[in-house]
């Protein structure tokens, strides 16, 4: 009855068009919403063969990586990933914090006008270009200056090179969110603190940073998840040797590099294919977990306020 009324009102042509468009929109939305599940389930199905044959603990903590004889220990790769990610965050974190404070609290308007395009361009530069830059600048620098300075001889293709390149790649991402967070701290709070006689820096330390601590932590969480999955740039400078690294000046072999380097060759051995899909699954799960954690933190503090 309602439909007939609608048709009368709109005319059949317009009614059908409206229905058609709404249907198409709905279909697209459902498709996009299902995508994360399809991704997860697809990866799980593909890596199912490996998980069936090996215990999960074995896979994660075994150091033996011999695909030809069916031994898949992801430990060296996971440890490499952790090293690179942690080091990158240690470099990028302080730089981003300091810059974000400078830009939101001290800097003149025109500095922000310069910095915005700079951040945008940094964010837009493809990762393979960062890789080229790493090979041209960072790797020789480590091998010729930084390594000898610490008394190490290295080729320069090290965890540290990967971490530096990665740090610069995640800086625009972290910086953008941090600026947003600091802007959202109400001015009244800072004004109250200043009115009580605190200096600008004390206000920043005790009001601004304290107020935005949860935001900062969740931003770093997002930064970690971004850094964890970065592939090409890291792969180009990190050395790719499957050993458990024990220092910044050692070569490493992070998980994404493992997938990227071996895909294509693995098709002849079915369990190898499955192992690489398992590596992708680990990445997927880690990224999802860190994202969930970061968002949950944001939502909780929003409610609290």
């Amino acid at each position: 009855m309602k439909q007939i009324l609608k048709v009368r009102q709109l005319g059949l042509d317009r009614y059908l068009k409206a229905k058609l468009h709404a249907g198409w929109m709905m279909a697209c939305l459902v498709l996009v919403m299902l995508l994360p599940f399809i991704l997860g389930v697809g990866l799980l199905l593909k890596s199912e063969m490996l998980i069936r044959d090996h215990s999960l603990l074995d896979l994660i903590f075994s150091k033996e990586w011999k695909p030809l004889s069916g031994e898949f220990g992801f430990y060296p790769f996971i440890v490499s990933s952790l090293w690179v990610t942690a080091a990158a965050l240690l470099i990028a974190g302080p730089v981003c914090l300091l810059t974000a404070i400078h830009l939101t609290q001290y800097a003149k308007k025109y500095v922000l006008r310069i910095m915005h395009p700079v951040i945008d361009i940094l964010a837009g530069i493809p990762s393979v270009i960062y890789g080229v830059w790493g090979i041209l600048v960072i790797v020789p620098w480590i091998s010729n200056y930084l390594g000898p300075f610490f008394g190490k001889t290295t080729s320069g293709y090290t965890i540290l090179a990967g971490a530096i390149v990665l740090a610069i790649m995640i800086i625009p991402f972290i910086l953008n969110i941090l600026i947003e967070i600091f802007r959202n701290v109400p001015d009244e709070l800072s004004e109250a603190s200043l009115a009580l006689g605190a200096t600008r820096w004390q206000t920043i330390k005790f009001v601004l940073l304290k107020k935005s601590t949860p935001g900062i932590i969740s931003t770093f969480g997002l930064g970690i998840s971004r850094a964890f999955g970065e592939t090409i740039a890291v792969l180009m400078v990190v050395g790719n040797v499957a050993i458990v690294p024990d220092g910044l000046f050692q070569p490493g072999y992070p998980l994404p590099a493992l997938i990227a380097n071996n895909y294509g060759e693995m098709l002849s051995i079915p369990s190898y294919d499955s192992a690489l899909m398992f590596a992708a699954l680990i990445l997927f799960v880690v990224v999802i977990v860190f994202n969930l954690f970061a968002r949950a933190l944001i939502i909780r503090t929003d409610k609290h306020n």
């Binding site: 939305l29 996009v32 919403m33 995508l35 994360p36 991704l39 697809g42 990866l43 593909k46 997002l222 998840s225 971004r226 964890f228 999955g229 970065e230 592939t231 994404p256 997938i259 990227a260 895909y263 690489l276 899909m277 992708a280 990445l283 997927f284 990224v287 999802i288 994202n291 969930l292 968002r295």
Partner: peptide
């Protein structure tokens, strides 16, 4: 919720899409 899912998807590394695309 939708925006949350989209941000989640945005965060998935491109190598995972690559592996998934290869599987498809």
């Amino acid at each position: 919720t939708i925006r949350f899912f989209l941000d989640l998807l945005w965060g998935v590394p491109s190598i995972v899409y690559g592996a998934f695309g290869f599987a498809i």
